[in-house]
Design a protein around this nucleic acid. Sequence first.
DNA 1: TATTGTTATACTCTATAACTATA
DNA 2: TATAGTTATAGAGTATAACAATA
Lengths: 145, 145
Amino acid sequence: MATVSRQETAAREAWGLLMELAFANKSRFIAAMAEFDLTPALGHVLRLLQPGKPLPLNDLAVALHCDASNVTGLVDRLEARGLVARQPGERDRRVKELVLTPEGLSVRTQVLDRMGTPPEGIRALSAADQRALRDVLRRALGRGQ
Amino acid sequence: MATVSRQETAAREAWGLLMELAFANKSRFIAAMAEFDLTPALGHVLRLLQPGKPLPLNDLAVALHCDASNVTGLVDRLEARGLVARQPGERDRRVKELVLTPEGLSVRTQVLDRMGTPPEGIRALSAADQRALRDVLRRALGRGQ
DNA sequence: TATTGTTATACTCTATAACTATA
DNA sequence: TATAGTTATAGAGTATAACAATA
């Protein structure tokens, strides 16, 4: 047989590099959230809570891919900080909806800006490389043309 | 002034897509490690422990970007499972080095193979896209030509 | 004095199970 | 009966501080 077994394909290497980039960014992300006195998990809650769109706690649990019991504690902490508020659901009295407070909205805006800022390695790429990366990743996520 | 403020640049969008891909992969990674009865953290320890290269616990803490006190517990669990062993350092008697057991080596090989397998979105890309992604990421990590 | 590793302790994130109040 | 949210509890991962052994 030919020399086939366990060769490093472009896909495998690309995936390894992508994970390396994401992993290297982990500390940076934790530090960025810490500037707002937030943990990564709390930052994700703020990210998912869109302004003007009350979010049932159950939907939040689904979006976070975690158990509903987990959400209680996360929301408790954000509420104690005055960043979010629980309000009763409109139709179903079992439901509690989460909304941003004015300060929560302000913090969220800053947090999203920070989260979305690419690390140095990406920023240093040529404009053509940045576009190529964007286009390939769009296709990888099923959003290509 | 021209329309400049807060436009979505290619770099920002690429970074957002990259994080989305990494985040979507998180559950997949946890599930893959669980097949070996490992948590992600324990999987990373195995990944960092190269065959034939005894690794001082302190070096492991540095590689994991975590405190040394944390490493004690991680290694305790892997040692209890028979996947690694502590052995005294060669020159410095303060140092304990970590080595893979034969079973640890076997598990590590399978774990690395799993970790390195790209998710469906990457595998479905054209060969040209896969190479383009690899090449751009190499440059982003400072390993381009 | 400084370093390696451990122990004691505490906090966050996560899950499961049992509970409540609704539906 | 089923669902939304909470509480109780437990385990993993992380950190800081204090400690023992060694350098």
